[in-house]
Design a protein around this nucleic acid. Structure first.
Lengths: 344, 344
DNA sequence: TTGAAAGCGCTAACAC
DNA sequence: GTGTTAGCGCTTTCAA
């Protein structure tokens, strides 16, 4: 591999001149240098440059599940903003595994200028980023326990749960079930709280047997839905807290031969991979996906540019909205107990 | 950030001893060193180590579309094999854009020890990997023009097309359409050739208006299907050459109110994101996904370990199979012209 | 086993 | 605008 010295010799200049040329400074012998670079197939060593400059122009994004289209979309958003700012994005997967996450973080720190992390758990370790000299970290989608030490882009998860509950209440549903995530996941517990508290406020308690916890993945949603829906007394509505588990729930619903929305109203969180393809269309709680990734990258860029490692952490909370489709239906003969929510 | 020198001083040894310790050599003062590392929060600089050793233990996987679950699955396979071999995987997206791909490659070379590339096009530039001193490259899923210079993991795309055509012929379909990819994509053109040639061999020619080219993405499939299916004379069967375009085609089919399989038999390539959730189930051509990524990583590991940059490139071709479901149906009243393929 | 010293390839003073 | 020089943090001879 040719080095900057080889180029310098071939072009009869000093190495530093070559360096200046590659870095965009104007130089007299630029043509000769260019020619030498071409002929020798010279590529500046990233390691050497990183070592010298102490920066890489690369950002790592670390997500718990690349196969989830939601994260794929946020990645696209982050990538675009990164590109506009001359930053390359690399992606790492943690598989919702806190140990693997730790290993990935240890490995990646020192190779990148900043990290966007979707923590695998509330207990994810962010210790590597706490030293004043550490590279900046932005949390996305989920939060960690304790005081907020990092810039965070989240959505209004609690309100998402509230909107879901309110919609089902409006339709007269009283016996509702929820498929939620592990207790250690901040985003799903906020959605769950919003949901349950809204029902509680309307004086309806969701019984334990109608609360199932899945692993955020298709199979978890399938199993959870099977548990809830194969019992003798079924709920009249089901809220599923993320997209992949919703896919599993849909599969279970198909297996059991349950008709949506006639026998069951179904409300999901996030756009589903099958959207546009299945009928009835699914009612969902939605949030900006690309935008969330884009925002995370913007926060990171700000830290990087300003070098303001000291300013206090910022938190952006993006809005959620309810998208009503055909999968949620007024409960036949049920609305009579309706409280202030129902118009009827 | 603490350096190896700081640790050395704190532990009253030489920097080289600390280095040996971190690299697993046995050292007398290991406890004191360990303590110093802990106290100082020392993390070895990846850049410095890379520069010195000339290796990073990181592999880059470069795919045209992270949002495609097929690639997500291959990534999972590659990641697992990488982990078993002490290699970390980072992922980059090229968005099917050959220019972006070029930029990504330029940027990534020098930061990683090897690359698994799904070329955005047959004309993708692999020049960076052709020098004898270059890092190893493994091509996956698609190939590039010219002689095979790199290890390649592909599937039997031609046979995939053949299987598809034969299945439709068996069912008595004669007027069939195909939604395929750009002419510059090796894998889709092989599938396309397999399909068209099988029909030609049975003396049926697929007319130009029944051959649409999409961009491999949902919107491309939607548009293509709309073009084909909104004409007055529709085909009795449609073959879509990849999963995302299949999703678009399904959406178009829904919009047009076409009933599958009664009014149209539908055959797709690859598992669909909506699988398990829609009915009728879709007949598909399938291939090992995780396994394909795993194989690519294995080839890379072999190159890396052996240092055998000189051995001739190996090509692995994984099998495809036809999975028959409810979306393809015998053509009512059509089978009479059937040749040797049909049992009826 | 250990320490001293050289150097991986690059960039950034500094003096001209 | 250019050459000289020092050094980023680590690993690896070499000699002890």
């Amino acid at each position: 591999m040719a080095t900057i010295h080889d180029v310098a010799r071939a072009a009869s200049v000093a190495p530093s001149t070559v360096s200046r040329h590659i870095n965009g400074h104007s130089v007299r012998q630029s043509e000769a240098i260019e020619r030498a670079i071409e002929e020798l197939g010279f590529r500046a060593s990233a390691s050497a440059r990183n070592l010298r400059k102490g920066s890489t122009q690369v950002i790592a994004m670390i997500v718990p599940d690349i196969q989830n289209p939601y994260y794929a979309a946020t990645v696209a958003g982050a990538e675009e903003v990164g590109r506009e700012n001359g930053l390359r994005l690399v992606l790492c997967n943690t598989d919702e595994d806190i140990e693997l996450e730790k290993a990935v973080l240890r490995d990646i720190v020192g190779r990148v200028d900043g990290v966007i992390l979707v923590p695998a758990s509330e207990r994810s370790s962010t210790a590597l980023f706490e030293a004043p000299s550490a590279i900046p970290l932005v949390l996305m989608d989920r939060e960690t326990l304790g005081p907020r030490r990092f810039d965070t882009v989240t959505i209004d998860n609690f309100r998402g749960g509230t909107l879901a509950a309110q919609h089902l209440l409006d339709l007269g549903h009283r016996d509702v079930a929820i498929i939620t995530g592990p207790l250690t996941a901040s985003q799903s517990s906020a959605r769950e709280r919003g949901f349950l508290e809204t029902f509680a406020a309307a004086r309806f308690v969701v019984p334990e047997r109608f609360i199932e916890r899945g692993n955020f993945r298709e199979d978890g949603g399938y199993q959870a839905a099977l548990n809830i829906l194969s019992a003798a007394d079924r709920p009249s509505a089901l809220f599923v807290i993320n997209n992949m588990m919703s896919m599993g729930a849909l599969r279970a619903i198909g297996h059991l031969g349950i008709k949506v929305p006639d026998n069951l109203s179904l409300l999901c969180f996030d756009q589903l991979p099958c959207e546009g393809v299945i009928s009835p269309r699914i009612s969902t709680i939605r949030r900006p996906m690309q935008e969330q990734g884009a925002m995370a990258m913007r926060l990171l860029v700000t830290r990087l540019r300003a070098g303001d490692r000291e300013h206090e952490p910022r938190t952006l909370t993006l809005p959620v909205e309810l998208s009503i489709a055909a999968s949620t239906q007024r409960l036949a003969g049920g609305g009579d107990r309706g409280g202030s929510y129902t118009a009827a």
